[in-house]
Simulated assay, not measured.
Amino acid sequence: MIVWRKSSYSGGGNVGGQDCVEVAELTKAIGIRDSKAPEAGHLSLPATGFTALVARIKQGELEL
């Protein structure tokens, strides 16, 4: 069973706090999904890719 949890960075600074990203530890990967549309599926990244993505977000390198 996959256990999804809300990202600690979700909901900050948005109107109504409705932006929610959930993450889960998968077999050999990290899953990311939109909590408002879990039926839409998820993105799977290897742990190193997930770490790199989070680092780029924290550094402001990506437009969100």
Score class of each variant (00 low, 15 high):
52 A>I: 01
24 A>V: 03
64 L>S: 13
33 R>F: 11
30 I>C: 09
30 I>R: 11
43 L>Y: 03
9 Y>W: 13
43 L>W: 11
21 V>H: 08
63 E>L: 10
32 I>P: 00
9 Y>P: 00
5 R>D: 05
35 S>I: 02
62 L>T: 05
26 L>D: 02
9 Y>K: 14
11 G>W: 06
52 A>N: 13
10 S>T: 01
64 L>F: 14
29 A>L: 01
27 T>A: 15
21 V>R: 04
63 E>Y: 08
26 L>Q: 02
17 G>M: 05
42 H>K: 03
10 S>K: 02
24 A>K: 06
5 R>N: 04
47 A>G: 07
1 M>C: 06
5 R>Q: 13
49 G>S: 06
20 C>W: 12
10 S>M: 04
42 H>P: 00
18 Q>C: 12
30 I>G: 00
45 L>D: 05
8 S>Y: 04
27 T>F: 11
2 I>S: 01
24 A>W: 08
44 S>Y: 00
28 K>N: 15
16 G>M: 04
26 L>W: 03
45 L>Q: 02
24 A>H: 00
63 E>D: 12
40 A>T: 09
59 Q>E: 15
18 Q>M: 12
25 E>Y: 01
11 G>H: 09
46 P>D: 15
3 V>K: 13
59 Q>W: 00
11 G>Y: 08
29 A>S: 15
31 G>C: 03
30 I>F: 05
60 G>A: 00
34 D>P: 08
41 G>W: 07
14 N>P: 10
8 S>W: 01
41 G>L: 10
24 A>R: 08
55 A>M: 05
40 A>C: 12
60 G>D: 09
61 E>S: 07
40 A>W: 01
49 G>W: 05
18 Q>F: 09
9 Y>Q: 09
46 P>S: 13
15 V>T: 14
39 E>A: 13
